[in-house]
Amino acid sequence: MSALTKSMEGSPHSRPRVSAKLERKLQRLAAVVVVGILSGLAVGLSRGGGGATSLIAGATYGFLLAGIIGAIELFVLEDWDWLNRLPFLTNLIARSAIYAAIIVGIQLLQAGERVAGAPLQASFEDFWWSFAYSAGISVLMNLGFSVANLIGPRAFMNFVTGRYHSPVEEDRFVLFVDIAGSTGLAERLGGIGIHRFLDRTFRLLTQSVVDYRGEVLNYIGDEVIVTWPEHNGAVDCRPLRCFVAMRRALQKAAPQFEREFGAVPQIRGSLHFGPVIVGEIGDVKRAIVFNGDVMNTAARLEELSRKVDGGFLASRAAIVRFAAPPPFPVSDLGRLPIRGRVDGIDVVGIGAVA
């Protein structure tokens, strides 16, 4: 039996040790708090001439506003499904109204002045000036959160930092996941129905992507493309675990899908590894795109996965890059012919994992 078939089923490492979702939220909250404190210091510097009292008051306001608003945004509002389904502008207005209520409460308490030992504000002019500045910063933060949710937090940060402004080559795992039978479902459910079906499915699949620290590159029709940098994806076989977690999530949600759509989504997938070129492209609509043979091969492997038991193929090039053996049995399928490659490609498959 090949070493590839060594099983680690039931090992304590079969699930993420630390919640990736929580870790990501805490990192974003820390960044928001830092920005809030710096903004508060800027206010104190501009209004108080740089005195210690004004700086302490400004930093206190910045810390409280950013900390409270950031925590509510990340740990409350992001989980309100009904709010996240609103149109962009309506969502922005609703969130801004919540932010405004928090700002008014903190300003009325005059927490900054109390912490700094400064005289309390006696005029409405001072109050409204502070409120307007805080509201402006909060709306900008809200806009940042909303844009990040539209294009993805990592893509947003990559645009802001200019990481891929000039194209670079990176070694990455690329996972293609396809929803089987979507064409037939589209005929039965209709255009709006299949859109709702795909939206519900992709939302569910994305939870597994977050859990295993992947990055959603794109949704294309009935497919989702997920990537990991080599150092990130090699840990604990995250791409494999992610795909299996997706299947388990769909199995768990099967009764709900059956009731609402009369069908349960089934997925196929493929995994490949190698160098990809990542860079910004376009003018009117700027995007970060991934190019290279790895992307084409992964897509063609997904086509082949439709013809094998288990509905999943991984290239040997991807399997050997993992830092540990696969967490469940895999079968060596040898070399398969693949469109565009004269010599074919060595692949392994997985069966149904409970």
Score class of each variant (00 low, 15 high):
Met1Gly: 14
Met1Lys: 13
Ser2Gly: 04
Leu4Ala: 12
Thr5Met: 13
His13Trp: 10
Arg17Lys: 10
Val18Asp: 04
Ser19Ala: 10
Lys21Ala: 15
Glu23His: 11
Gln27Cys: 11
Gln27Arg: 15
Arg28Phe: 09
Leu29Tyr: 07
Ala30Phe: 14
Ala30Asp: 02
Val33Trp: 03
Gly36Phe: 04
Ile37His: 03
Leu38Ala: 14
Ser39Asn: 02
Gly40Ile: 07
Gly44Arg: 00
Leu45Val: 08
Gly50Asn: 00
Gly50Tyr: 05
Ala52Ile: 14
Ser54Gln: 02
Leu55Glu: 03
Leu55Thr: 01
Ile56Cys: 03
Ala66Ile: 03
Ile68Gln: 09
Ile69Pro: 05
Gly70His: 05
Ala71His: 09
Glu73Gln: 14
Phe75Gln: 03
Glu78His: 14
Arg85Met: 12
Leu86Met: 13
Pro87Gly: 00
Pro87Asn: 01
Leu89Lys: 00
Thr90Gly: 14
Ala94Trp: 13
Arg95Asn: 06
Ser96Lys: 05
Ile102Leu: 13
Ile102Lys: 04
Ile106Gln: 01
Ala111Cys: 08
Ala111Phe: 01
Val115Arg: 00
Val115Ser: 03
Ala116Leu: 01
Ala118Glu: 10
Leu120Ser: 09
Ala122Thr: 10
Ala122Leu: 03
Glu125Thr: 10
Phe131Trp: 09
Tyr133Ser: 02
Leu140Met: 14
Val147Lys: 02
Leu150Met: 01
Leu150Val: 13
Phe156Tyr: 14
Met157Phe: 09
Phe159Glu: 10
Thr161Trp: 11
Gly162Lys: 08
Pro167Ala: 11
Leu175Pro: 06
Ile179Phe: 07
Leu185Arg: 08
Arg188Leu: 08
Gly190Val: 06
Phe197Cys: 02
Arg203Asn: 13
Leu205Asn: 04
Thr206Gln: 11
Gln207Trp: 10
Val210Thr: 06
Tyr212Lys: 07
Glu215Gly: 02
Asn218Met: 12
Thr227His: 06
Thr227Ser: 10
Pro229Lys: 15
Pro229Tyr: 10
His231Val: 13
Arg238Leu: 08
Leu240Asn: 01
Cys242Ile: 05
Cys242Tyr: 05
Phe243Asp: 01
Met246Ala: 11
Leu250Ala: 06
Lys252His: 15
Pro255Met: 08
Val264Ser: 09
Ile267Pro: 06
Ile267Met: 03
Leu271Ile: 02
Gly274Glu: 08
Ile277Pro: 00
Gly279Arg: 08
Ala287Tyr: 00
Val289Ala: 15
Val289Phe: 08
Val289Asp: 12
Asn296Asp: 05
Thr297Pro: 02
Ala298Pro: 02
Ala299Trp: 06
Leu301Tyr: 10
Arg306Asp: 05
Lys307Met: 11
Val308Tyr: 09
Asp309Phe: 08
Asp309Met: 07
Gly310Asn: 03
Ala314Glu: 01
Ala317Pro: 06
Ala317Ile: 07
Val320Glu: 14
Arg321Asn: 12
Phe322Met: 15
Pro325Ile: 12
Pro325Trp: 12
Ser331Pro: 01
Asp332Thr: 11
Leu336Ile: 13
Val342Ala: 14
Asp343Val: 09
Ile345Ser: 05
Val347Met: 10
Val347Phe: 11
Gly349His: 09
Val353Lys: 05
